[in-house]
Amino acid sequence: MGAGHAHALYVHRTSVLHRLPAQCKIAAVVLFVLVVVSTPPRAYAAFGAYAALLLAVVLAARLSPLLVLRRMVVEVPFLVFALLLPVVTGGERVDVLGLSLSESGLLGAFNILAKGSLGVAASVVLASTTTIRDLLHGLERLHLPRQLVLIASFMVRYADVLAAEMARMRVARESRGFTATGLRAWPVLSKSLGALFLRSYERGERVHLAMRSRGFNGTMPVLRRTPTRASQWATAFVLPAAAGVVALSAALA
């Protein structure tokens, strides 16, 4: 992961979603996912409706649905787990294509797949429409402890630097004929890890001294603070509100 990684999943576009303040989007996504997670697993139609809502948001953000799908691969390991569930779970059995599968296992697998996928898709949309800097700013506006946001922004700023440092160490190892095969490589790799820690920590000390000499006293000054308009909150909350209506009608049906 080189320099491109500073922007993680961000896709530069101009859309309603890109313009919304990060704090509104984070709150909206968390609320939306909470609604999804609270929906009973048998409300199949509700999950279809949630997916349709998300698709509308993806289109409103002028993102390609294919891109969102491609970025959902992070959940593949859990997909495998979910597919195993009907086999290992007990309870009543049903025959599907000659396999005897557990009914509650199938329901559990569907539940995890549907909710997990909707959650990942919503997070992908958030990360694709918001820069990392704005996300951090949004977290602060949502009253996360300032110290925590500060640590997070240092981490973001230096993750690339350390990743590049690690890449240089790899080049150094490989130009001396090292190939990482099997357990015998572990001592060498662990030494690289230890060296990476020393370099990180010492860099942290240098960064701190440099900041001290520029007047740093433990907190970062806030340079701009534009108030969030009620209309922006309202726009962001269209998604969780619509999901809430779907969940309510599913509960009443």
């Binding site: 240092f154 981490m155 700023r157 230096y158 630097v161 095969t181 790799l189 890890l193 433990g218």
Partner: peptide
């Protein structure tokens, strides 16, 4: 006041360190 830079760099170290693959 050293907390933020040092903790941030340590978090970045954990993050970068998790990308180092150990062959089994």
């Amino acid at each position: 006041e050293r907390a933020a830079p040092l903790a941030g760099l340590t978090a970045a170290f954990v993050f970068a360190g998790q990308m180092l693959n150990f062959p089994v």
